[in-house]
């Protein structure tokens, strides 16, 4: 059986955090440059140019692109033929987060009601999945909460239908407006259960831009939703325009005969994500 030290996972998480704080994903920057070309509003174009300039400046100066470097969301796919050694996996993930955030803003409180800052940005939010093979894949999001706060979910009844799903997604973007720092990336979860649908939406945000769903009916729905969202006129930073969202990604799973769960998770103008296989 392959052995993998949790120290390696700790170091990988720390590195991914530092790199992602300063450098936004290449596919996102490419989508932003294309958006800058097609945005019809002059103010909108200024906003997109400013965000692109900000990304280059942050990268060249090695400073965070946004002051909110978010809360770390760590998704692990652990091959069932790996034996993790050298300590406790959960502790290693939190230690990696603490190290990665050493020079970044501390945005985590230990209790949602008492609200004492943990002062080291731990703990992370951890999702693990056991998969075939002997590799460990780490997917990291540094999730800004301006956009997280505008995300929504709803348990619709079985026969609500695709039109109700569309209305709910569009309504979410309207309510978010400028608050989620548009242009946004829209992650939609469909199906599963109450707990599962939120994770589907989060996973949808982890898909690189420019990759439609492999399921044809969902790829078509992604395109229809994107067009409808961009017809809203909210535009970059909400000052009006034709680019309100860069992409809509849908992830789905089986569900119960009684329900049609829907979750909409938004990503903002600092969509930091990274992936590594160990």
């Amino acid at each position: 059986m392959r052995q993998l030290s949790v120290k390696k996972i700790e170091a990988a998480i720390s590195n991914l955090i530092e790199e992602s704080a300063y450098k936004l994903p290449a596919d996102y920057l490419e989508a932003m440059r294309a958006a800058e070309e097609r945005e019809a509003s002059k103010t909108g174009r200024i906003m997109l140019t400013t965000l692109l300039d900000n990304a280059s400046y942050a990268e060249s100066e090695q400073i965070p692109t946004c002051q909110d470097t978010g809360m770390a969301i760590v998704m692990l796919e652990i091959g069932q033929d790996v034996h993790l050694i050298d300590g406790n996996l959960t502790d290693a993930i939190h230690a990696g987060v603490r190290a990665g955030y050493a020079d970044l803003r501390k945005s985590v409180v230990s209790d949602p009601l008492e609200r004492q800052n943990t002062a080291d940005n731990s703990p992370a939010i951890i999702h693990t999945e056991i998969v075939p093979g002997d590799k460990v894949t780490i997917t990291l999001a540094m999730k800004g909460f301006g956009a997280e706060l505008m995300s929504r979910m709803q348990m619709f009844p079985a026969n609500a239908g695709v039109e109700r799903v569309k209305e709910f997604v569009i309504e979410t973007i309207e309510l978010a407006g400028p608050n989620a720092c548009p242009p946004v990336i829209v992650g939609v979860g469909l199906g599963s259960s109450f707990d599962g649908v939120g994770l589907l939406a989060k996973k949808a945000l982890m898909r690189p831009l420019g990759q439609p769903s492999p399921k044809p009916h969902l790829a078509q729905l992604e395109q229809e939703l994107l067009n409808a969202i961009n017809d809203l006129g909210i535009g970059p930073q909400g000052f009006g325009g034709t680019v309100t969202a860069l992409a809509v990604h849908i992830e789905s799973y089986a569900t119960h005969i009684a329900a049609l769960p829907v979750a909409v998770n938004l990503n903002c103008s600092a969509p930091r994500r990274a992936k590594i296989e160990l």
Partner: peptide, 29 residues
Amino acid sequence: KGYRSDRVKLALIEHQAVYFGAVGGAAAL
């Protein structure tokens, strides 16, 4: 950044104050 409530918007008129938006996400610049 983002929407204000109607009460705040009315109070801006009453107190002669202004609400500016800065570019969210452009923190380095």
